[in-house]
Amino acid sequence: MNLVILAAGKNTRLDTGIPKSLVKLNGETLMSRHIRLFKKYGVKKFCIISGYGAENLEQALPELKSTHQVDIKILHNKRYDLENGFSVFRAKDWVEENGMKDFFLTMGDHVFDPEFIGEFVEKSAKLENTLQLAVDMPGESNKHIDIDDVTKVLVDDHDFIESIGKTIDSYNRYDTGLFRLKSDVFDVFQQSFDREEYTISQSVSKLIASKQAKSVLVEGYTWNDVDNPDDLQSTIKLMNESRL
């Protein structure tokens, strides 16, 4: 199993001068935490997509490799001014060169309870869709989530995604930022780029019509998106409460 980690964003809302994935929480960077936890659940190769502050990630690479003893590749996205779907596409050659049939994808500024990751790894192995998205049910375990910023998802009774976006009115799940994708998903991203659509959600929308976008409910665990100073403080609080 292999993981792509997006870490190219410009950090406009949490500008510490370094990529958000290198922010330390309880003495460990978000990037190091990702590698440690996903390694625990069987991921052997990691591809980090850099952009803003790429030199900081390059400087951190030797220590990440030494600490975790895994294969880590950094690929630079020069067009990090575009949306996150373009960063996903930057991993295409890495996926093909390594002969991967599928791969995991997450964001460098997200934080997951370890058991959340383990449950998604197990559940997603049983499905055959091009895209599988870990979703959560709105409830007590995620009441700290910024409702204005979280990507919302509407799924049907069979867990197929019907719509996705930050501003949709009707929804019953939250997008947690963790995916399992088949390698042919890059064809869909290219179709989106041809229409100058660069978000992951826009490419997911293209898979909805063909019933190739499915949700995987991972409920009852804590996760967060460290996108701004409030998110950073809420994540620290959750860690101090042993919820992450």
Rank of each mutant, 00 (worst) to 15 (best):
K10A: 15
W223C: 08
S203G: 11
K40D: 11
G42Q: 03
T106C: 15
Y221F: 15
G108Y: 00
V111S: 07
M31H: 01
T235P: 04
N172G: 12
S203Y: 04
Q233A: 09
L75P: 06
Q191R: 15
F179S: 04
F186A: 11
F193G: 11
V185R: 00
A60K: 01
L181T: 03
L207Y: 00
L3E: 05
I49D: 07
I145S: 05
E162I: 15
T151F: 06
D113L: 02
K206D: 14
K237D: 15
F86Q: 08
D169T: 14
G9A: 15
F38P: 10
R79I: 12
D175S: 03
E128C: 05
K40V: 07
L154F: 09
R180C: 07
T151P: 05
G27V: 05
V155Q: 04
L238I: 13
C47D: 11
E115F: 13
I164C: 10
L154P: 11
F86A: 15
I147N: 04
K92G: 11
L25A: 06
K214I: 05
T67G: 00
G220W: 01
E58M: 09
R243T: 04
E241F: 02
N84M: 13
S201V: 10
R79V: 13
M107V: 12
F120C: 13
P229I: 00
L14D: 06
V188F: 06
H158S: 12
H68C: 10
K182N: 09
R173Y: 01
T222H: 13
N240D: 14
S124Q: 07
N77T: 09
D231S: 14
L133H: 00
K45E: 10
L232E: 03
L37F: 07
I5S: 09
S87F: 07
I74F: 08
V121N: 02
L244M: 12
A91W: 10
K101R: 03
T12G: 09
G177L: 05
I164Q: 04
S183I: 03
K101V: 04
R180H: 07
K101D: 13
V121M: 15
S203C: 14
N2H: 08
E162M: 14
M107E: 15
E55A: 13
I35W: 05
P62V: 02
N2T: 09
A7L: 06
V185G: 06
D15R: 01
A54V: 07
L30W: 00
G118W: 01
D146H: 08
T222S: 11
I147S: 12
L14M: 08
P62Q: 00
G99Y: 02
K73G: 02
D136L: 01
I48R: 05
M100Y: 09
S205G: 11
N56S: 11
F193I: 14
Y174Q: 05
K152T: 04
D146R: 09
K152L: 10
S66D: 05
E241Q: 15
L207F: 03
D146A: 11
E122K: 14
P138M: 01
K143S: 14
S201E: 14
N26D: 14
E197Y: 06
I145Y: 01
N172M: 11
K237N: 12
I168S: 12
Q69W: 00
G17V: 09
Q59P: 00
V226L: 10
I164N: 05
E58G: 03
L217S: 05
S141W: 04
V216F: 00
E162T: 08
P19D: 02
E122I: 13
G51S: 09
E55W: 03
